[in-house]
Simulated scan of single mutants.
Amino acid sequence: MLDLEAEVLAGHLAAITEWLPVASSPRGVVDLGSGTGAGTFALLDLFPHTYVTAVDSSAVHLQRLREKARARGVEGQVSTAQADLDSRDWPDLGTPDLVWASASMHHLADPDRVLRTVHDTLAPGGLFAVVGLAGFPRFLPDDAPENRPGLEERCHAASDRHFAEHVPNRGIDWAPKLTAAGFSLEAERTFTVRVENSANKAVRTYAMGSLRRLRDSSAEGVPAEDLAVLDRLLDTASPDSILRREDLAVRTERVVWAARRTT
């Protein structure tokens, strides 16, 4: 799913990295919660002479990231560190000029402590880019499916209630926390994404995987009739399967905060 998302939203990710207020190529970059490397490689595309340290708690994700670095011929510019960001025992990350954290900060048990640690890790004048998620992407038209219009919105509402209880920092405004940690907030922007290419196999597969995750997080909060229709959409053998629809569009938003260490 992480690789699919990187493929489907590649243009969107490039737009975010190009927007960052970075005057020159950073000497060192840290990707916190790197996953399989979507941010790592987007930053290397923008800054081809920099060096990136990718940090993640998953050995599987980091192995996949190293394989992708070798395939791209940039293994000499990428190192990995397996670490739990909630642990106080972080690996030595040097003094990077840029720290990137995309869709990772909201998972932390104590983000305020981590923000202070990032502040102290950055080189003076260095930039911290936080990319926040508003929620799962949307894929279906508002009047779909035909026998249960509005299904996706109802599932999103139930999912939002679930995450408000279990992941309270998902979707928050990071600006106050960044300034409390000593950063100077330099810029903030919401990026709106719409990818309309349902003939693309990657888009359809991404929709299938995302809606499966949405079902898991919304199952307790929607009527049984909604779940029955959603299950038909998720059944690859069903004539109603998402994989057979020609009206899909990836619709989502990302909010980006760019904060600088000024001391």
Rank of each mutant, 00 (worst) to 15 (best):
N200H: 12
L108V: 10
L214Y: 00
A38S: 07
W257E: 03
A38Y: 00
N169G: 04
E7G: 03
V222R: 00
L233W: 08
L133W: 09
R70W: 10
E153Q: 12
A103Y: 09
L115Y: 04
R116Y: 05
V193K: 00
T121R: 07
L133H: 10
V8R: 01
A10H: 10
G39R: 00
A175G: 15
P223F: 07
T262Q: 08
R194M: 05
R244Q: 11
I242Y: 01
D45V: 03
L2I: 13
S104D: 05
D143M: 06
F191I: 06
A6R: 01
F128P: 00
L178I: 12
A180Q: 15
E7S: 07
S241F: 12
V229M: 14
R27M: 05
S104L: 03
L127R: 01
T50K: 01
E18A: 14
D142Q: 12
P149Q: 06
A175H: 15
S58N: 13
R260C: 02
G150M: 11
H61I: 00
A249T: 07
V256A: 04
T190G: 04
S159V: 03
L185P: 07
A23M: 05
A59F: 13
L85H: 01
S102G: 14
N200Q: 09
G221M: 04
E5I: 04
A259Q: 02
R138K: 15
V60Y: 11
T80G: 02
P168I: 12
R66V: 05
R70H: 14
D231A: 13
H12W: 07
S79P: 03
E165L: 14
K177H: 14
